[in-house]
Design a protein around this nucleic acid. Structure first.
Lengths: 102, 102
DNA sequence: CACTGGTATCAGTAAACAATGATGTGAAAG
DNA sequence: CTTTCACATCATTGTTTACTGATACCAGTG
């Protein structure tokens, strides 16, 4: 069975800045201040994007004093990887599987 | 080195309808008429989305008489799968890799 | 050649969304 | 207790972007 890719997760990753954030978080766990430094985005803007990533289940927060650390949820990324692998495998067989013109 | 995910490809897949189209095309090669049937979207709308997918390099066209068949490029999906796998692997090690508060 | 049907392009509109500024909350530090 | 700093929320603005209708194009058919 072909488990389709979760639209919400992909949509959350569809924004360039958010994708950049995810790439940064794949290297190390960071707090908002660090992310502001790294991306050059305003704090408010970043906070909005982090909310989207949080609600999509891609990151989780870990409060540490008055800082908030963000860490990726590796399972989610691994799940995406697997789903795209399935899609790719299915697409290979679909090449000769052409539906007739109506 | 961490090869980041291609933002253009992800952005193209970020739309729910386009993701649905990709899932459909993973099963069989279809022309616009079929996709109109399957999705219920208008022909014009669909044609726009196919243009986005084409320009992102996700699908390629194969003219067949007056029909245009669309087929997925499995390498692109496989590439995504690999890149997300790398991100996931990196994210697992990043969990303990916490940058100090400023 | 005229006609039909499949598809792409164009222009306009409506809706979604990213970015910004102002403000509120809550935790440490003096 | 007051101040400071990190972060979140709210309201607003501006830009993308998805959708629609009209139209043009191109291939097969009579």
């Amino acid at each position: 069975m072909l488990t389709s890719v979760d639209p919400d997760v992909i949509r959350a990753l569809g924004d360039p800045l958010r994708l950049r954030i995810v790439t940064l978080l794949a290297r190390e766990t960071l707090c908002t201040t660090h992310l502001v430094e790294e991306t050059g985005a305003k704090q408010t803007n970043l906070s909005n994007h982090m909310k989207v990533l949080r609600e999509a289940g891609i990151v989780e927060t870990e409060p540490c004093g008055r800082y908030t650390y963000y860490k990726l949820k590796p399972e989610v990324l691994a799940g995406l990887s697997e789903q795209f692998a399935e899609l790719a495998a299915s697409a290979r067989t679909a090449a000769e599987n052409k539906r007739a013109c109506p």
